[in-house]
């Protein structure tokens, strides 16, 4: 399973960069995630609660930021395991400055799932993944732009 997309953010690259490195923001933007707990540099532990079709449940996940190029890009590596099975996803997030102080964020992702979530939820997975990801960036956009207004 893979996909890609982009969002226009009404904030500078520096402002966006600060947000997408902030574990509190990341946690708030991820559906079904309460908090990210730092375990080592660039690596977090999280409990994710996600339902795919009839397969609902919790995943013990690690979320890792890798290949970090300051104000330009990083890789987000998510590995989750739980009663419904496992999820392994990798996303590349890249920032590019726009003309009027805005930022274009583009992303590509691949994901593999296994166990019950694959055997039962397979038909829904593409849709659910899309939903989770668009929801993530919608929330992120809100976060970034709300800050802009209040600033």
């Amino acid at each position: 399973m893979n996909g890609n997309g982009s969002v226009e953010l009404n904030a500078t690259v520096e402002q966006v960069w600060a947000k997408i490195l902030d574990p509190e923001v990341l946690a708030e933007c991820m559906m079904g995630c309460k908090e990210l707990v730092l375990v080592e540099d660039g690596k977090y532990r999280a409990d994710l609660a996600v339902g795919v079709a009839a397969v609902k449940g919790k995943y013990d996940a690690t979320i890792q930021l890798a290949d970090v190029i300051e104000r330009k890009s990083y890789k987000l590596i998510v590995r989750g395991e739980g009663a419904p099975g496992f999820v392994e996803a990798e996303g590349l997030i890249e920032l590019a400055p726009g003309e009027d102080g805005s930022t274009t964020l583009t992303y590509t992702y691949t994901a593999e799932v296994g166990g019950k979530v694959a055997s039962i939820g397979q038909r829904m997975l593409g849709g659910v993944a899309k939903l989770l990801i668009t929801d993530f960036f919608k929330k992120l956009k809100k976060h970034v732009e709300k800050e802009q207004k209040t600033a």
Binding site: A54, G114, A118, S119
Partner: peptide, 8 residues
């Protein structure tokens, strides 16, 4: 990859 896809 060997994931089972027809579980219901």
């Amino acid at each position: 990859n060997g994931q089972f896809l027809s579980g219901s």
